[in-house]
Design a binder for these strands. Structure first.
Lengths: 154, 154
DNA sequence: CCGCTATAGTTCAACATTCAACCGATGGCT
DNA sequence: AGCCATCGGTTGAATGTTGAACTATAGCGG
């Protein structure tokens, strides 16, 4: 922090931007999570349901889902377990690969998503997208695409 | 998700950017956290130590610290408790306001920070800052500054 | 100075996440 | 076929986080 000629510290603007990102992200996620609570789910659950809803047959293999969300398989197992007891997701074993498990959106899950999605999207707009200029938001997309790409699969 | 004339859904580019942000952030945080593990702390602990190290007398009031990190006071109490048993932080009661508590960085805490900081900053550069163009990273700063500002204190 | 409400911080229990150990299935190799 | 390293997923225990209830102090209005 004091005399360290070897390290390329962030300059003042980079510092400020980095801190803004940290704080902004923390507040944003907390807010979106909070807003979803009225539907009985959190943003993590929401993202799971969305991924399933977009997939063919409204289902995905556990490992695939875990990768898309960058979550550990263990975490996903627990979360899907909860979603299953909430009847939002159903698990069926995969016939072609007997090790595999499909997580499949139930009708109730889809119905919940239809309800929650407009509110959620509105929140994303109000608290992020509409605050950023079109060009700035595109920049955010580029940056984090590069980040995701650079870090790669676990 | 299908027929919903009232909701302003994200357009394709916004969708992609939003997803990139979610995935990129997840991977980035996991990576930074992971890299810090060799020092026995996580990114959350690290941020606490940094905030303290920058403050006058290397100490902050608990509530102040919680606000800066957008954490609940409860969470901070627990975390500082752990940092205290690790001897990285010391708690002393505030004389001017008897309700208050100072969290203060110990010498060991400062020493750890001096060790960890170069590695951490290198990680932030390699996995984020250096991947973004100067202008794009500035945009990230602007956007999340606006987000943090918009959402405000809890 | 009293009474009231708000603030600072902690505690406890419920809940979520992590990590390592585990089990069965798979697929490549001989 | 038989071996074995790997994969897909789950389990359970330890660890971390949340949220509400609680204690103590502050500070305001009368």
């Amino acid at each position: 922090m004091t005399i360290d000629t070897g390290t390329r510290w962030l300059n003042a603007e980079q510092q400020v931007a980095w801190r803004a990102y940290l704080l902004g992200t923390a507040r944003l996620m907390a807010k979106l999570d909070d807003d979803l609570r009225r539907f009985g789910i959190g943003i993590n659950d929401y993202e799971i349901l969305v991924r399933l809803s977009e997939s063919p047959e409204r289902r995905l293999r556990m490992a695939d889902l875990a990768d898309r969300l960058h979550q550990s398989r263990s975490r996903l197992t627990h979360t899907v377990g909860r979603l299953e007891t909430a009847e939002l997701v159903r698990r069926t074993s995969c016939t072609s690969d007997k090790r595999g498990v499909w997580a499949e959106l139930t009708d109730a899950g889809f119905a919940l998503l239809e309800q929650a999605a407009p509110y959620h999207v509105e929140g994303v707009r109000e608290n992020l997208v509409d605050l950023a200029g079109t060009e700035d938001f595109a920049a955010v997309g580029r940056v984090f695409d590069a980040v995701a790409e650079h870090i790669g699969q676990r």
